[in-house]
Design a protein around this nucleic acid. Structure first.
Lengths: 216, 216, 216, 216
DNA sequence: CATGAATGAGTCTTCATTCAT
DNA sequence: AATGAATGAAGACTCATTCAT
């Protein structure tokens, strides 16, 4: 879709490396990931990894950049589909959930990087994340203007929608690994899309104007 | 908890080690943390660290165990203070937020471990986390019975309350590190306690029975 | 010298490579020099470097050979200009100094290779160096015969003239890099040609027959 | 002599490492030297090398520092033995030559570092080298005052004495390695001490006041 | 002639862990 | 309870060299 115009050099090898890197970074974090293992999983010589992309930090930057870009694109596309504030707000975590379905390591990667506080985060990626946050704010303000939503803090709302989605995605992943205890608590959890919808129900219920629901 | 009967050897040294370890694990993750640095920050010889606690995995286990225990205790204590379902539900993320105030590295550590999917997590710690989840469920069911809450998925609600709190705590931490972009988006954010309260307002609004709010 | 009959392939590219190699070998030594950097500075593809010249050792051989050849030629030419023993002796370090002016990295390269003891030195280059040494001896013997010089060890004299010139050339290079201490000691040093002349004054004074200076 | 007061930790291992490092740096230069080989020759684990001393640059700094210190001490001591300007001047290269006899790799190391222009040279070492240069100047000025020497450039004279000594030391080393050509030119060369004396004869002859030699 | 891609052995450095004292 | 020294494996990264095109 985006690469139709020109086939740059080594696109195929480069992509294999980035895919492998995403996996390994997700599994072990930046510090715990091994360049050797990334190369091995990508099926390329370790030196090629440096030739094509650069050092570990550059590798990480590319991976995170691609993922954040993908999410931002997904959210942008989703918002274009409707004008109803509630539907637009719902579209945001849905876009996340859909992206997660294609890239299962995404939540791990995001949680890890957020936890780390972004020391390996290239600046332009931070910009892109802020953009998505800005979309949530725009939707909320719009809903406020139309009288659909009551006034709520956009940052909190954004974190609620996204944070919860990421946590749920992770919880589903952990379900299989903990047969006891924690596993039991997670039994019966639906798929991420369904859970996201139910979560948004709660949130929308919480921020919708009272009169819109019955004169309160 | 288990070792209360007797003050074992080097309690003070042991604690200094665990504190340093918590810091370093939070900053760099399990893989990225270095035993050398933990020892240096604790001001003890590296060999003593092995003598007092054990290897890196044991160290991590102790740290996580202590933190989860502390949170579970805080939540338990908070729930004892009131009978009102809404207040009880609010108490849960509040207990988290309060614990974070004392142990600022807690959210990093939790997010990281959740992202990792718990490969270094001792089983009894998972038990304890499930316990806390169970408390949320109990509060929700109780609220349902009393007619205060409508029926919502307890897992989703728990993750919403806790996940959002953790995300907010981290967002506050990142505010100082990203002067541009992301930083601007985080400007004006209040303190964690205040943010948590506002977040719970939305959630409570979302799960409270309509008639409780005005006959809808 | 051997390839004069025909202009072989890529003379210009070849020369750019050798110039770049001389620079890099001078700066970092044989072990520290990188083929990649040589190629980059020469503005050629790394593979071309192997195509045109050969491996790292061949590259080094060519560079040193060219330089020793250039010096030998310069000394030979200079000796042809006069018959006076003193002037002839002075001509030798002067030829060095003049060559250094055109190829500033020459003393570094020579000092390094001399220090290394010539493990990368092609045999014919050693021959050429011996030749130059032979010229000094010839001049000294000649001066002895004519009664201008007293009998001195030709090897020592040669090393005195050349070694000191090389050291002075390097001292001038270091002057700029050490603003303190060593730098101050080097302040006020003249240019290499002038310094060489003054050094030769001392040496000539030292090896000239006493009676020859009697009326001086 | 200097270490009598206190035996610091790991003095023996540390010294073995430094000795091996001096050898390897002398043979291959900074860039060409391998930490692995240094460790192997010292008979220690590679990690111990970092534990005791530090990285490659620190290792090099220690080696050079020790050598320069040793030379400076030797020169200082030698100058204390006599008041005669000629003898004092002669003492300087003699101290070098004597130091070389004990540490045969010294000239290689010095030539290499001088060639490199001191990029790995710790500042205090440069200070020490400047000190030695200052001693030569002092001796020359003193000789001038006493009417023994004529006025000559102290920097040039210093480089002449030291540079030639270093070159001679190296020439002797190369004698064995080049049976042909260059080797023949070096045949018959005496030992370094003898050569140094003859070199100084020339230099002293060159800088001594004419009238002082009037009756010769 | 020229290039980008590839490789395997090498580089320096740090790791988690243990032991003798 | 405490320490400095030791170790082997692994870490990230670069090297000189070659090949297909």
């Amino acid at each position: 879709m985006a690469e139709t115009q020109a086939i740059e050099h080594g696109t195929e090898t480069r992509q294999r490396i980035l895919d492998a890197a995403a996996e390994v970074f997700a599994e072990h974090g930046f510090g715990g990931a091994g360049v050797d293992e990334i190369a091995r999983r990508a099926g390329v010589n370790k030196a090629m990894l440096y030739y094509h992309i650069g050092d570990k930090a550059a590798l990480f930057g590319e991976v995170v950049s691609a993922i954040v870009g993908r999410i931002a694109d997904a959210v942008t596309a989703a918002l274009a589909d409707t004008d109803d504030p509630s539907e637009r707000l719902r579209a945001i975590p849905r876009a996340f959930a859909r992206t997660v379905r294609e890239r299962p390591f995404l939540p791990q990667l995001m949680l890890r990087e957020i936890a780390a506080g972004g020391p390996h985060l290239p600046p332009h990626v931070a910009e892109r994340m802020a953009e998505v946050m800005g979309m949530t704010r725009a939707v909320l303000e719009e809903g406020c203007t139309k009288g659909t939503f009551r006034k709520v803090d956009p940052l909190i709302t954004h974190l609620l929608l996204i944070g919860t989605t990421m946590f749920m995605a992770n919880a589903l992943r952990m379900r299989e690994r903990f047969p006891t205890a924690l596993g039991r608590a997670l039994q019966g959890a639906a798929e991420l899309d369904a859970m996201t919808d139910r979560m948004v129900d709660i949130a929308l219920n919480g921020i919708t104007q009272n009169e819109a629901r019955g004169g309160n």
